[in-house]
Design a binder for these strands. Structure first.
Length: 497
RNA sequence: GGCCCGUUGGUCAAGCGGUUAAGACGGCGGCCUCUCACGCCGCAAACAUGGGUUCGAUUCCCGUACGGGUCACCA
């Protein structure tokens, strides 16, 4: 079987040169986990920081594990996060196709090239169950390593099923370099003759990755540290092909705790879950960027970054080698800050649906309610329970009127409400300033501290111990009529107590 | 078990031979204040461990412990 060398030359000719090219290469087997998102972000940042090209490639060689809709989640997440790609299945590009199953014809040819070079061999052994529990950890030489060309040809002619394996040198060592982990050297004897082409004719991840990264001109391979131990085998492959070895950037995992990675199985949130839980995309990205990377130099203390600022600040040297535990409490902090940093009208816009979940009354101005909420919530999802009292006065206890710090009890509260209610019915304009002015003025006239008057008003108006905003804001939003109605109800409650 | 990697407060982390070992989250205390928040101020809290090397080690080397990864016709 003569190899078509022209084909290989043409493939080489397509490869863009000179610019940084990175790729995010997810397999569509699930959802965007936080770890995936972080890898995508770092990969994108490396390309953008260098003014290079970012590519999206779908690695779907495991036909058994494909999950329907997973590709759409990837597209949607990347788009929402602003991680735009320059080349990919949907936008095309010079080195496509960008879906591995659509490249299936390629891998066999490259595997044969390797066989020709002596760096790989046909293996006709029966598929065996992995003997992980056999206690046998000694590497055994595959008998097919030594098949003669005639024997191989005969087996192929007989239609015997086969895989193609990488021929790892029996002796010597292999060294590879990783940007954050440095040089790592391993004994070749500890490396196994990994399968390159599977029985179904599709390549394994390990082979497809090398071939595609080369053919797509990838300069920086960014991936999880779980691939660290297979990296030496990659180098051997690159060397056998005579290809330039890319820059490796291995990232340690995002953990849920000291012992486990984040995982769907443990109920850890995916990107989509976080959004559904009320987190802002920018807050998630900002937090995730800092989970395993930190800025150097003068900006070492900076912690709030826009995507643009990240592009500018990101450098590979800042990537951490050790695993990082995902701390949702710190994400809360970032989210709260992003919420507060929004323009009030923008916040009102995103908050309104949550406000309307519990406040159905159209007379209640959602924008005004939102203004109270902006500094008071870490997540949008905690809004409904905070503002439910605007819709309906809860059945509260008279005990609420007693508050030591405000110097109130039932008698004083009753007195305050009886005094303030008729006044509120008469003030000229129902706005925050006049309400505040008259309440403060009344307190002064009564010679009591503001709190002594404000407390019972707020309790009567809201029926809750804790409210977003004070008596003035609550009354203002409720409107004069409803406020007076509620205060009178409070008076009644106190009189009957 | 072999091989590889990692280890600074509860968490994220700065540090890259000489520092009172940053900063942030969280916790605690206080101030502000019409509740709660916001904001502001302050406090507690760390170099896994034993040997080297060195005038001097959190920083460099070796061992140990602990943790992670890998040893698939999965990625």
């Amino acid at each position: 079987m003569a190899l078509d060398m022209k084909f290989f030359e043409e493939m080489e000719a397509r490869i863009p040169k000179g610019k940084v090219r990175t790729r995010f290469a997810p397999s569509p087997t699930g959802y965007m986990h936080v770890g995936n998102l972080r890898t995508a972000l770092y990969t994108w940042l490396i390309a953008r920081h260098a003014g290079g090209t970012f590519i999206l490639r779908i690695e779907d060689t495991d036909q058994g594990r494909l999950v329907e809709g997973a590709v759409d989640v990837i597209y949607k997440t990347m788009a929402e996060c602003g991680l735009t790609h320059d080349e990919g299945p949907d936008v095309g590009g010079p080195v496509g196709p960008y879906i591995q199953t659509e490249r299936r014809g390629l891998y066999g040819k490259y595997a044969e090239l390797l066989v020709e070079k002596g760096a790989a061999y046909y293996c006709f052994c029966e598929k065996t169950e992995s003997d992980e529990d056999s206690g046998n950890f000694v590497k055994e030489a595959d008998p097919c390593r030594d098949l003669t060309a005639e024997e191989v040809a005969a087996n192929l002619a007989a239609g015997k099923p086969y895989v193609i394996r990488q021929r790892i040198p029996a002796e010597g060592t292999t060294t590879f370099h990783d940007v954050s982990f440095g040089d790592i050297t391993v004994e070749n004897s500890t490396l196994d003759d990994q399968v390159l082409i599977k029985r179904d004719g599709l390549p394994t991840y390990n082979f497809a990755n090398v071939v595609d990264d080369h053919l797509m001109g990838i300069t920086h391979v960014v991936r999880g540290s779980e691939y660290l131990s297979s990296a030496p085998k990659y180098n051997l492959l690159y060397e056998a092909f005579g290809w330039d070895i890319p820059t490796y950037v291995h990232c340690s995992p995002v953990m849920r705790d000291q012992h486990n990675k984040m995982s769907k199985r443990h109920g850890d949130p995916s990107y989509e879950d976080l959004i559904a839980k009320g987190y802002l995309t920018n807050a998630v990205l900002n937090y995730v960027a800092l989970l395993g990377w930190s800025p150097k130099g003068e900006i070492a203390e900076k912690e709030f970054f826009t995507l643009e600022e990240l592009v500018d600040a990101f450098d590979i040297a800042g990537i951490s080698k050790s695993p990082a535990i995902f701390d949702i409490v710190k994400l809360d902090y970032f989210n709260a800050n992003y919420l507060r940093a929004m323009a009030p009208e923008d916040f009102a816009k995103v908050a309104e649906p949550y406000i309307r979940q519990s406040v159905k009354n159209p007379a209640i101005d959602a924008a005004k309610v939102a203004a109270l909420l902006q500094a008071r919530c870490e997540k949008l999802t905690e809004i409904p329970e905070k503002v439910d009292f605007f819709d309906e006065l809860p059945d509260y206890s008279v005990e609420f009127f007693t508050n030591k710090k405000s110097k109130t009890n039932s008698e004083i509260s009753l007195e305050m409400l009886q005094t303030v209610t008729p006044m509120l019915e008469l003030i000229p304009d129902w706005n925050a300033e006049t309400i505040h002015g008259s309440l403060v003025g009344l307190a002064e006239g009564l010679n009591v501290k503001n709190a002594t008057l404000m407390w019972p008003v707020r309790i009567a108006a809201a029926g809750k111990l804790v409210t977003p905003g004070g008596a003035v804001e609550v009354c203002h939003i409720l409107g004069r009529e409803e406020t007076v109605r509620r205060l009178k109800k409070g008076i009644e409650k106190l009189q009957n107590a």
